[in-house]
Amino acid sequence: MFGFKKLFSGEAGSKNAAKERLRLVLIHDRASVSQETIESMKRELIDVISHYIEFDTNDLEFKMESKNEKVALIASIPIVSNKKSIKGA
């Protein structure tokens, strides 16, 4: 099914993968921030934020994105909502 869709949506072929990978690599290169740096930043941020709120560590998203010629670090931290309240409050 997936293969069928790919074949007819014009997305077959490896060039889309190349372009997508390059887009991300160039963002990191231009900002001079490696994936490794982001990983360690992520660990520290998780540490800090977990002192205050409860969230699902598996759902975290950290990424670099290009917006209007500028590179931004985007973090998405979904807060666990069925827990009553903010820790320590």
Partner: peptide, 16 residues
Amino acid sequence: MVRKKEMLDVSDIEDL
């Protein structure tokens, strides 16, 4: 290869 979408084309590279 470009026609088979197995190679980046000129506009892809220009974009990047």
